[in-house]
Design a protein around this nucleic acid. Sequence first.
DNA 1: ATTAGCACTCGATTGGATTGAGTGCTAACG
DNA 2: CGTTAGCACTCAATCCAATCGAGTGCTAAT
Lengths: 342, 342
Amino acid sequence: MLTERQRLILNAIVDDYIRSAEPVGSRSISKRGDVGFSPATIRNEMADLEELGFLEQPHTSAGRVPSTKGYRYYVDHLIKGTQYEGSELSVMRSLLTDHMSHMEQVLQHAALVLSNLTNYTSILLGPETVSTSLKHFNLVPLDASNAVAIIVTNTGHVEHRTITLPHGLSMSGMEKVVNILNAKLAGVPIIRLKSRLYSEVGQELARHVDEYEQLLGVLENALSGDEDESRIFLSGTTNMLTQPEFKDMDKVKTILDLLDEAPAIMKLFHDLPSGIQVRIGSENDFEAFNDCSLITATYAVDGQAFGTIGILGPTRMEYSKVISLIDLLSKDISVRLGRWYK
Amino acid sequence: MLTERQRLILNAIVDDYIRSAEPVGSRSISKRGDVGFSPATIRNEMADLEELGFLEQPHTSAGRVPSTKGYRYYVDHLIKGTQYEGSELSVMRSLLTDHMSHMEQVLQHAALVLSNLTNYTSILLGPETVSTSLKHFNLVPLDASNAVAIIVTNTGHVEHRTITLPHGLSMSGMEKVVNILNAKLAGVPIIRLKSRLYSEVGQELARHVDEYEQLLGVLENALSGDEDESRIFLSGTTNMLTQPEFKDMDKVKTILDLLDEAPAIMKLFHDLPSGIQVRIGSENDFEAFNDCSLITATYAVDGQAFGTIGILGPTRMEYSKVISLIDLLSKDISVRLGRWYK
DNA sequence: ATTAGCACTCGATTGGATTGAGTGCTAACG
DNA sequence: CGTTAGCACTCAATCCAATCGAGTGCTAAT
């Protein structure tokens, strides 16, 4: 357990380092108003804190830098209870008031606002496929052999896909197909659609359609969504470039490249408990992101878990500010989507 | 006019500089097999070429670097007729053989292949809105007050948008709306849709629907597409980071940020003649891209202009290779889309 | 017309001295 | 006894002068 003075000093060091991005020495925090001790005393404490693993020294005769453990203690115990910065709060409110017509727009816009306000990278995840189910299916004929398949989920998400129909499927045949699918598949979770398609729809289709095998194949294709790809909304990826810790091009490139890949992002976000979560540096078990911290919050609509909001930045991140912003935004999105949902 | 020897030397310098990214001296090109003159002679010629504006010297006692004019002469007169690199050619062929179901997929995939093969940034533009027209319109009811509007264009592009319908619009009313819209608007260019909506559809609608004013507003909204946003397919933007000339973070950030903005890209691509086009450095009148070259090719489907393929890289770009690749790919896409089109 | 030779330029590299921000330790102090 | 002043020490960063070397332009010889 840390003494009160140690906590004070640790807090000062982390704050200073977050501001300046440079190792902080005993003198500089002694000169700050809030720690009324001489450099010598502070040096002693700093040595102790280093021994305990909260601080690190790039080299002898340099100042101290917070370790992952140091940041961890900072966010867990030292951050002053969510101190909303009034101005930015109202800015966000005003930026989010545009009326928007569908979920994707809300999320993409929120991502933009968030990255602009923080100067970090924002990552928003839409509804998990696990918790979405089919609400409605439809086919709109284009010409003799092509049609657009429309898939509407219970989360209000709409997708379309052009498909090629088997030869000789009549207008009324198509209507029957649509009816059968809706009857059998409405309410079924997206991830179960394929198996259900074969187990329940197959025989039924066979009774009404000649080329039902080919049709099944086409439908299977139509019903398997992009999964992850379309859930992800990114913004401000280039903000990484402005951080002094990422002056190394190669490192930045690997990070930016990973952010372009849906699977990498899903891995980064894997296994998050609900509520606000902070993953600091080496805590997120992903080699490339060891110099980054990820702050996430899940949001819910209508009581059930929905998606996730994330901010990715350097470990030297303005935790306090970001946490309060993300907290706020997640609630706001819940409300906003909840309202529009009905 | 340049002498044969000057052309030879200019060619050697540009080639060398493209390879090494460092100022080229007289000795090093004298040692290359293809220019059989002594360094002294070459120096004289280089001085002349500099006076003529084809070369530049970063400072006295450094080698020469091609100027924009130098690159221009190089691509116009010195590049050996499209020398397909056999291996990469076949790689591209094989990468593009996957069967793909719609235009967007083809273009996005082509962008990926192109950026991977070149290590530059690839930018593909889908069909221009000017040349697209409405082929088919449809409404799919979701619930009492919402529906999905489906817009199909003559280029095979499909868009959907969820809209909120006026209260009390019956099923049959909706059918009428769809019929009217299709009758009046099919074949109309996308950019004219709005004006036609008011000039021709208005009265007709008024006769059949009560709340036609509100409906008109909603339809107008539904028919105005994303325009540019959805035409653009980018890939390999982070390849910029690997180029030594872009080691300056600020410069890279401005470029990457611009690439995220549809209007900027449209401005970059403005006013391109058909065929293959090379814009070198300061030639593209866009401050931020003065260190970049843009190579573009338009492609056509069914005889009419369709979209554009572009590669953005440093001025020190492998013009010869990129030009041949882009030439090839543009033709390939034409064929591919043309086939799938029917 | 070409080229060998040479003096010259100037950025890049090298290495040694200096600086200065930081430390740890010890002894003095309230 | 906890705190602090003082001091010797460390080490990256900065500075500076010397040197290097890749390159040039010019001139004179071939």
